[in-house]
Design a binder for these strands. Structure first.
Lengths: 397, 397
DNA sequence: ATGAGTTATTCTGACTCTTGACATAATGCC
DNA sequence: GGCATTATGTCAAGAGTCAGAATAACTCAT
């Protein structure tokens, strides 16, 4: 509950920062419009932010006549944030400056079969230290870490990591121990939503859903521009909604979960059902199989087409449900499977989605497929953005 | 976005009103604790509210020693609100005072087969006028109306009424025309959530879901004590989430919807599938059939038991999904079907819910079944509460 | 050059909010 | 009647937002 004037200032300050980043380089006038704040307020807040070094006036734009517009940018030199994406098979740590521009990264393979906590924690710490050492003299504002499973951020405990069956491991404490930086932990589905919230000015106050399609499946839910975490930070586990009653077993222990059908292993299982001997199957490499399906589908291969049709049918049902329940403005498909198959799945699922959504929510929802760019890992970006958010809202502004 | 100090005051004032109602009769100290506001602030706000006539100091409590505690109540004499529940077969208009205590009501049958807009609007207007005339000289603060379907509150247009196939009917305008009162419109699933939010002090800032099980099925979603409406006021259409791929046809035009299985007609369809000649079936009366199932189930009738088991299986799947997606603190079952069958369905669905939810959201969620009391129609209460909310937040406090 | 015209920002004063500290009110008890 | 005790008003301080006045930084015509 907003109580005191200081809270208003913090909120508004933060809104200004996001507005500046979303529309870089931003004029004060534009920020006032985007945030709904008065001009005077934006001016004082910007002066403050510039004092603090968070924002710099980077350039000026000359209109035809009159005083030039001062254009502001987040100041990369303010400091660095590191985002770490812990996945089943790899670990990606990426350093960003305070303007969330990607700088350097460290990529390490993880052995999926050695899953003791220290087998993960040690490489993470190593990667963070490596990245930090690459930028000597620059202040490290914070580190964000993405770990799969349900993560209790307040206690920083990785309570349930689906692939690893960890239980009550205090991952945060283990990672942060002795590290001279604020470390924040969350799971990839929410961090993808955080990443999205920093990339598009329209996201500042929209209500939307970021679907993460990868090995795991989940949804980051953003309401009025704020990440919705639920009671215990486990909202968005759409991947474990029931799609088929008593259907396929899921790695979470339940059956018929959405993830069991449209997660990468689910798609591969569908392929194996249709043609157990398909040359597209690479038993040792999910990524390769998904890539093979994508390529074959582009060439009209009937097996691949059938796999996509089946996947799109499941995806359509599951997405229709979430649209009916949440009435979002946008549904965004992200994650590495989306990057490869998102467009074709969405195209084929559209009729299904249309058939299973009510007219009103259907008519107002937009779709977007996020393709990863080759430089930035979006989960790392989200983790870094989380660290930046925490730093900014913690810093008295 | 909270911008100015006036917004803070409005928010806080409103929080105080809700806190007083939730814990009637309430001490200032208790309110301060419940709202998190300082004592001084609560004191000034209460003085304001008492000035306005919204609150009265109704009694005092004598502690062992010291000045007695002044206990405050919402002042019923402040005015009246009327809540109207438009259902398929009846119309229930109920008058409440400003403390949301039920006073009088008017119940009219509606002929489900005559569904032109004026066949509904005229009785609604008549009922409102009848109720208003019963309390002469008392100010009417507002009228809330519940209409089935997807309702755009801002424009007040009933865009889609599932049972009636209305399209773009400006129900609000038709009802309010010439009536000397502020009329507000929403749909029953959200109004049940509003009603719940006014009945229990714990609901003030909880995140929860109110499942409406009746002829139609839906969910009112409340996040941090605030009703979540989605982009176009159609959030919560859980009844039209896909439960069974290509399953039973639903009256919304889609297939396999949750409502088609656990709404009253769905339950009856399940019964008819199990035993087409069951004596429990009353082809002309949904309510009677559901009541008969409830009674028979209590006596161990195998057909009724099988119907409940099947319904509980569907219910369990659908509820598990919403728990995984929203991670709520409480799931509340409301609506007339819940009142009759809620307990037994919930009991039988629990293992299913447990099997299909992740450990974290499962371990923190509570369940509650709302049984209607014989006096108050909960949808009317929610409609009245909506009108009261609108009045209070509109009034400068 | 220079003043007029234009547009962007900052400054100022008015008003409002919350809060901690202090003052005041209403009791029971001795 | 005075004292201890608890519950509420009151007040000044600190902080925010905002509308509008004042200032800054340009272009352009003269």
């Amino acid at each position: 509950m907003t109580a005191t004037t200081a809270d208003i200032r913090r909120e508004n300050s933060y809104a200004v920062v996001r507005a500046i980043h979303a529309d870089t380089p931003a004029s004060r006038r534009g920020v006032a419009k985007a945030t709904g704040l008065s001009f005077a307020t934006v001016s004082t807040i910007c002066a403050n932010l510039i004092d603090q070094g968070i924002v710099v006036e980077s350039s000026r734009e000359r209109p035809h006549t009159g005083r030039p517009t001062g254009l502001m940018t987040l100041d990369g030199a303010y400091g660095l944030v590191i985002g770490v994406d812990i996945a089943e098979t790899y670990l990606h740590a990426q350093t960003f400056n305070a303007a969330l521009e990607p700088l350097t990264w460290t990529h390490l393979p993880l052995n999926p079969s050695s899953t003791a906590p220290e087998d993960v924690v040690d490489p993470v710490r190593l990667a963070i230290q490596t990245e930090a050492a690459r930028h000597p003299g620059q202040p490290l504002l914070g580190v964000g870490v993405s770990a799969p499973g349900v993560v209790d951020t307040s206690g920083g405990v990785s309570i349930f990591a689906a692939g690893w069956a960890w239980h009550d491991i205090s991952l945060l404490t283990m990672i942060a121990d002795g590290l001279d930086a604020d470390v924040h932990l969350d799971n990839p589905l929410r961090l993808l939503a955080v990443a999205e919230s920093w990339t598009d000015p329209r996201r500042l106050d929209q209500t939307y859903v970021v679907l993460n399609l990868g090995t795991g499946v989940g949804a980051g839910i953003v309401i009025d521009g704020r990440l919705f975490r639920g009671q215990t930070n486990s909202a968005g586990e759409w991947g474990h909604a029931v799609l088929v009653s008593d259907g396929r077993p899921c790695r979470c222990g339940s059956t018929g979960c959405v993830e069991a059908y449209i997660g990468a292993p689910g798609i591969i299982a569908t392929l194996a059902t249709i043609d157990p001997d398909s040359p597209l199957l690479d038993p040792d490499d999910q990524t390769a199989t998904i890539a093979a399906i994508a390529a074959a589908c582009g060439q009209g291969d009937p097996t691949a087409t059938a796999v996509i049709a089946e996947t799109a049918r499941h995806f359509g049902d599951a997405v229709a449900s979430i649209i009916n329940v949440l009435n979002p403005e946008v549904v965004i498909m992200a994650g590495w499977v989306s990057a490869q198959l998102g467009d074709v799945i969405l195209r084929q699922a559209r009729p299904r989605i249309d058939a299973h959504t009510l007219a009103v929510p259907r008519s107002v929802v937009d779709f977007q497929v996020n393709h990863a760019d080759s430089i930035t890992n979006p989960v790392s970006l989200g983790a870094a953005a989380l660290a930046l958010e925490r730093h900014l809202t913690g810093v008295p502004i």
